[in-house]
Amino acid sequence: MEKTLTYFQEKKQKSEWITVVSILVFILGIVLLVISGETTWIMSLGLVLAAPGFIGIIVGIVLFNRTISKFKSMYLKDYFSTMIEEGVYRPKKGLSQSEVYACGFIKRADRFKSYDYLSGRLDGIDFRSSDVHLQERQVYTDSKGNRKTKYVTFFKGRVFQFDFPKKLDHRLQVLERYRPRDGYKYQKVDLESMAFNKKFNTYATDSHTAFYVLTPHFMEALMKVEKNHPGKIGFSFFDEHMRFAINNNKSTFAIMPFRKIDEKLVEAFKEDVEGLYEIVDDLKLNRNIFKEE
């Protein structure tokens, strides 16, 4: 494992150096072009430096992305498959649109992108998840009066789907600054806990379902999940699934330039997955006492 990490780190470092040196050469070339004036040899030198500098930047970026992609598809894929029972990691795939919108509180996007798919079984509970990036189209008029279009991100985070031990005929949503968007007739429900009502808005198509799912222990566990996962969070419960989404403006398995690929990085990813085990345990999703054999 260590050797493989070193291999990817060396390749990543090489691509970063190519990019940095190319940027410097490109800047030097541009400076020479600007100050060359009538002097032909300075202009030529500027061109000779700027052109390969530009190509070097492209090559560096391509090599960087290729290395990250290989690290994910080769190293992380194997790592997660050994760490999680029936673990499947697909860096370039994600949850489908229907799976994401099944949450019931995520607005439909004009641009949909999902990646870093991770699924498996945690403590006997099946889960599926992926990073999701959603953008909406906005038309605006610039200072010259021209109508222009831009895409604005309104959701960037992770969406999860877990098996839920209670079978629900009605729908329930526990939302932090979201609202139901799936077209069903919800009623707002106030639970006994003031702290919970302050943190979340609870919507259910039937009040009994809200009280059935949200036991005092479960409310505390949801508050703990919210506390451990900063960002705008929402939970939905229907049929035999619990879905939740965290809009935290993060890509879970992103590797930034100059961040070392080493045990520390892998440990950070491991902690993310261990956080999922904690969720299963805290919410007692693994307590299948209601299901008949």
């Binding site: 209670k166 059935y212 006492i289």
Partner: peptide
């Protein structure tokens, strides 16, 4: 298993009623 589920329903109904 059924009785455990039914009990959860009773608790939910009781809490909803009291609320």
């Amino acid at each position: 298993h059924s009785i455990a589920d039914v009990e959860e329903h009773i608790q939910a109904a009781r809490r909803l009623y009291n609320s």
